[in-house]
Design a protein around this nucleic acid. Structure first.
Length: 437
RNA sequence: GCGCCCAUCGUCUAUCGGUUAGGACACAAGGUUUUCAUCCUUGGAAGCGGAGUUCGACUCUCCGUGGGCGCGCCA
């Protein structure tokens, strides 16, 4: 029988990383097995399940490349079917009507009263429980609406789900669900329960712990492939020492028996590293396209600049696309920002304006303006002042870029070109003299 | 309270009875560099405790301890 799995979120407007990880594991399992990955939107809470909330869900999935097979199933359209199954269960004696708790008459499913309940979890192994430790539970409320357990199982039956891969918190619900499957006379699917993603305190990771929703990571400039890879490593490992994997490798390697059964702590530092890793390894043209888009989004133009040269130096030091263009605006505008600390440390000293003017003058007089000649100028000036190259380089860097970090100064100067460099040096010297910087 | 599950470096993990317990992130030191980043080298860093089983336990069993989850007419 071919594998059919599903991701069954209830749309709330946000997609939690723990939730999307369940989707990732389902997707990978389906792709590995050559089966189907289905999407079921559990939108029975109409108040929260707005069109926007559903769109957000779909966008997040598309962003991560979680494509699904077959039509999306909307649970809210299947209520009659759920209720019909409840009636059938009553007829067969698996459920009964009762006024439990005095809220009115509801439908209650009968759980076994003796013996042992057991199932084999593909991640956690054997899960056992004494029947006496379970209780009958409501499947249709007194207002006539079906409860989660009923809807969930009936939908899984109708969608012919073979493997239920979901969060750890459903481990005990599974006994109820298996009871339902058996009562309906449907084959019980295989179960695999994934451990939770927790915070530093070992508590379930929530929005109070930082970015917790897929949309937030997207906004903060994380690459979908980096998030995907990172989330996969929370609870799964290929068995060898590889960590950065292509989608193809993940699909080839993914099996449920390699999933861990203990909770995983969310460590943003590793995600940050991985994001940089992904950015660095992107093909140059992909990086360039994103780079240009970011620069243009800031109303800057890349016209007339040495883009290939800039790309070469920026790709290796970009950890987030969202840093662009702040990290390199000086390549594209004369109105670049100055880092206050850098100015205080490198430009606020006697003699700096004169130094900058002298550098500009010598640069202007150079027969050829390139890495070698500019380097020679600053080296000579440093020696003349007996102060070393660093004392020349740092002020010049801050003056021409506004920043204390970035590409090598001489590469930067060559990329900017003599005219801009000299103009900037003189402008900054003047601003320093008249106190406007 | 009752039930279920879990437990290897600070973190993510490898190990499926025999290893100097490996890798990655982070951290530290060094190399390269004018800065930052990259890259390279090196270093510190772990089997929760206690009983068993076994020639031999991180690995199997039990008891503790700690943590998580569940026990809704929420999903």
């Amino acid at each position: 029988m071919s594998v059919r799995v599903r991701f069954a979120p209830s749309p709330t407007g946000n997609v939690h990383i723990g939730n999307i990880r369940a989707a990732i594991f389902n997707w990978l399992f389906a792709r590995h097995e050559g089966g189907k990955f289905l999407l079921r939107v559990e939108d029975t809470d109409l108040a929260r399940s707005t069109k926007e909330a559903i769109d957000t869900l779909l966008e997040c999935m598309a962003w991560l490349g979680l494509d699904y097979d077959e039509q999306v199933v909307y649970q809210s359209r299947r209520i009659e079917r759920h209720l019909a199954v409840a009636d059938e269960l009553i007829r067969k004696g698996f459920a009964y009507r009762d006024n439990k708790g005095g809220g009115g008459e509801c439908v209650i499913f009968r759980m076994p009263k003796e013996g042992r309940l057991e199932y084999t979890d593909l991640v956690k192994g054997a899960i056992r429980k004494k029947a006496e430790d379970t209780q009958d539970f409501v499947i249709v409320r007194s207002d006539g609406t079906p409860v989660f357990h009923l809807s969930n199982v009936v939908d899984d039956i109708d969608m012919e789900i073979t493997h239920v891969i979901r969060g750890d918190d459903h481990v005990e619900n599974t006994f109820k669900h298996i009871g339902l499957f058996k009562a309906v006379g449907a084959p019980v699917p295989h179960y695999a329960h994934l451990p939770m993603i927790v915070n530093n305190q070992g508590k379930p990771y929530s929005k109070r712990d930082g970015a917790a929703f897929v949309g937030e990571f997207k906004e903060q400039g994380y690459l979908p492939d980096a998030l995907f890879n990172f989330l996969l490593l929370l609870g799964w490992a290929p068995g060898d020492d590889r960590e950065v994997l292509t989608r193809e490798e993940m699909i080839a390697l993914f099996t449920l028996d390699r999933c861990k059964s203990s909770a995983a702590r969310f460590d943003i530092k590793k995600l940050v590293w991985m994001n940089g890793e992904y950015i660095r390894s992107q093909p140059r043209d992909v990086f360039e396209a994103e780079f240009i888009a970011r620069v243009r989004a800031a109303d800057l133009s890349v016209e007339g600049t040495n883009l290939p040269g800039i790309m070469e130096h920026m790709q290796v030091r970009t950890k987030f696309y969202s840093e662009i263009p702040a990290s390199c605006a000086y390549f594209f505008t004369e109105d670049y920002a100055f880092d206050a600390k850098g100015v205080a440390k490198r430009l606020k000293a006697d003699g700096i304006p004169a130094l900058l003017d002298e550098v500009a003058e010598k640069f202007a007089a150079l027969p050829v303006f390139d890495m070698q000649t500019t380097h020679d100028v600053l080296t000579a000036m440093g020696e003349a002042r007996n102060s070393g190259l660093g004392a020349m380089v740092h002020p010049v860097r801050v003056a021409v870029s506004g920043l204390t970090e970035g590409p090598g100064l001489f590469e930067m100067l060559a990329l900017l070109g003599r005219d801009k460099v000299c103009a900037r040096l003189r402008t900054v010297a003047n601003k320093l003299r008249n106190g406007t910087l």
